[in-house]
Design a protein around this nucleic acid. Sequence first.
DNA 1: TAGATTGTTAATCGATTAACAATC
DNA 2: TAGATTGTTAATCGATTAACAATC
Lengths: 236, 236
Amino acid sequence: MAVRPRRLDCMDIIKRDIDIESVIEEMRKQNVSTAVIRRLPRYYRHLNELDRAGMVRISSSALGRSMGLTASQIRQDLSCFGEFGQQGYGYNVGTLLREVMEILGMDRGHTAVLAGVGNLGRALIENFDFTWSGFQLKAAFDVRPEIVGQIIAGTPIFHVDQLENYLKEHPASVGVLTVPRSIAVETAERMIRSQVKGIWNFTNMDLNIHEPGIVVEDVHFSDSLQTLSYLISEEA
Amino acid sequence: MAVRPRRLDCMDIIKRDIDIESVIEEMRKQNVSTAVIRRLPRYYRHLNELDRAGMVRISSSALGRSMGLTASQIRQDLSCFGEFGQQGYGYNVGTLLREVMEILGMDRGHTAVLAGVGNLGRALIENFDFTWSGFQLKAAFDVRPEIVGQIIAGTPIFHVDQLENYLKEHPASVGVLTVPRSIAVETAERMIRSQVKGIWNFTNMDLNIHEPGIVVEDVHFSDSLQTLSYLISEEA
DNA sequence: TAGATTGTTAATCGATTAACAATC
DNA sequence: TAGATTGTTAATCGATTAACAATC
């Protein structure tokens, strides 16, 4: 179990002599920076490989060497979520791996539905390993009659008209958005009204959705390629 | 033309009374931080929309409002590359758009080849607009005899054996990597030996390539989904 | 025990924001 | 001209790195 640092309350201030400053410090931990969050999947990936290679224990400095991070950063990152190591020993690879999985929420039984079974949508359905990230892909939606009713790689394809009905019966954690740009916002909003908590957005546009509690994670291919373009173009 | 800040030389120190500190400052500009670089494609995207909406001029504060950045940050970002605005007026949308395109290297006639015409590779070939990012997709490579020889959406598919031969005749700026994990590193290395400058890596693994001058840009779907998983899982 | 390595506090570094003189 | 807005310098904020007491 990931032992998240207990939230301090007034009693702590009275019982132990803690100053206000350190209480604020402690509470800030609840808000982990996105820099740290975005490194977590890399930790997961690397720990997995170490685990499968049969490695039992690893120190922050060794892990740092293998991942190209400093030992300090690794200890600092992990300390946002609890105390997982042991002085003089380091970290148990298997234990830390499970902790990271738990921190990432991969044990929550998350589910996903996908809208837009074009080439990219189909590629995700057929080839992307949702379970590797702790998700189950339950259904996909499209308008084309020739694929509605099919089952692709175990995933049933329904007509988009059925989106709300389906989600009412089977609430999903995340909606995967692989529809054309023109209907991206509309489809995202329908998913959100049907209670998904997050949108995994593959349309090359900013959805500009600011519903409280709704998270949009963008995968902008063209931003990525343009960044690469910049980096290979340096110096005229 | 993007007027990049002229590199200061000794004469500047002699002519004007500039101290060493400010020269160093000036030179540091050559190294633009990745934070800034990763924002450039978003500028490009937004300026494009403003341009197509017929907007002629925009101030840093208005652009900031529409992009969710501070005016300061926008002016600071742009100042890494030159002076594109005018006091009291702001920026000309069309001009700034072209400047950003140039900064991103989108006018360099970059080319790409793709290895691995599976579902994802095919989705990129058929649906991804390379030209939007200043690239031309010249060819794709695979081993499957049933697709070798075909032309998909204008892109000829060759056997992977022909990769080196092809690149020798037609050097490419970037290699798009959509092959299975097992042959990812090997294929990337072949592309690099054939003089590509960058690898656009869609395999869910770190390539660990450290060739000087070679840039690897990762698109890690699973990292992205796991980040989303974390964000929708907060508080137990 | 002695050596190793943690978690955390302090120091440093870098990136964002604010302020303002320059000027269109 | 007066108002607006830039580019840049200074101030602030946040993230990374270094240092070290605690302890396995």
